[in-house]
């Protein structure tokens, strides 16, 4: 009865793991259960098996048996390359990793998160469940491209997608994805735009549905000094500017939450807070319309007035 492919792959893994020295293909065909048929058939079978094991992340080393002769290459799997190397992991650390994996519940990565967790639990360390109970929250990603963007980034595969240009028209971009980051719940892809030969940042939500991979795994190398945080302007320290507002009594609760009251009046209260994001501050002030007046800084006041003038003339 022919042996199932999965059985042959397990036998091959075990044989290569057990090898102290590189073992030749002919030896593998002779001793590993599951190889049968013509020499050519076995050869093809073995090539596919090697690819399959490598797709599972198993590193198969190839080496010469005798350095003095151009001999047939041999193969082996080093235990140190095969096994999970997280020695001395404490129960508290394992619990923390379990929480890290659980963060992705319901998200694109729940399968990988579960398999990571299972491998960690196979280390035989008891969870410290009393110390860390659950993820602070779960992340839900409703984006049809996201799984592909992520896997292509991890696998260093080129991506092809449509993205709005300056005139808001969708234009095709070919990108080598270098990294993915989330900032305040918004996801960003950072990569090298092949046509422009420059690193660009793309907001994931603006990438048109139907993104594709355009090349093989490992198609490019990341620059050795790449650090995604250097490419995200929002992570740079913004200036802290005090803002003074007058807000109507019993109104503008959102602004009151972030401010301290510095003066009470009959109709208005004077509030102060420190801003670090000017566009967001303008939005928050305009949200409350006639219930808020900017006192300082002057530039903020001018921006708010200009926006109000623009909206007033459109009525």
């Amino acid at each position: 009865m022919p042996i199932e492919k999965a059985e042959r792959l397990i036998n091959l893994t075990m044989a290569l793991l057990a090898a102290q020295r590189y073992i030749k293909k002919s030896q593998i065909f002779a001793v590993v259960a599951g190889y049968s048929g013509s020499a050519e058939a076995m050869e093809r079978m073995f090539e596919r098996d090697k690819d399959d094991l490598r797709n599972l992340g198993i590193v198969i080393e190839v080496g010469g048996l005798d350095p003095l002769f151009d001999d047939e290459p041999g193969y082996r799997i080093k235990q140190s390359e095969y096994a999970l190397a997280l020695e001395n992991l404490t129960a508290a650390e394992l619990s923390l990793l379990a929480i890290a994996a659980k963060t992705w519940q319901d998200a694109t990565f729940s399968n990988s998160a579960q398999s990571a967790l299972r491998k960690l639990r196979s280390l035989g360390i008891e969870n410290d469940a009393t110390n860390y109970v659950d993820a602070p929250f779960h992340i839900k990603i409703n984006d049809s491209n996201f799984a592909l963007l992520w896997s292509a980034t991890i696998a260093a595969q080129t991506l092809i997608f449509e993205y709005p240009n300056q005139s808001n028209q969708l234009a095709e971009r070919e990108i080598q994805p270098y990294g993915i980051a989330a900032w305040r719940g918004q996801w960003y892809l950072v990569g090298r735009d092949i046509a422009k030969n420059a690193i660009r940042v793309f907001k994931v939500a603006r990438i048109a549905p139907g993104c594709k991979v355009g090349g093989k795994v490992g198609a490019f190398k990341l620059p050795i000094d790449f650090d995604i945080s250097h490419h995200l302007v929002m992570l740079q320290d913004p200036p802290q500017i005090p803002v003074i507002l007058h807000v109507r009594k019993e109104r503008c609760h959102g602004l009151r939450q972030k401010s301290k009251i510095i003066r009470n009046d009959v109709e208005w209260d004077e509030l102060q807070f420190i801003e670090n994001n000017r566009p967001q501050t303008i939005q928050e002030i305009l949200w409350y319309g006639p219930d808020v007046v900017v006192i300082s800084p002057k530039e903020l006041k001018m921006s708010v007035v200009a926006s109000l003038q623009e909206m007033a003339k459109n009525g």
Binding site: G57, Y82, L97, T103
Partner: peptide, 21 residues
């Protein structure tokens, strides 16, 4: 007898999960 090493995707997910925490 030993669990397989974590894949790049599994490691990335855990690293980012620790960022979240």
């Amino acid at each position: 007898d030993k669990p397989r090493k974590l894949s790049s995707e599994e490691l990335s997910i855990l690293i980012m999960g620790l960022d979240v925490i």
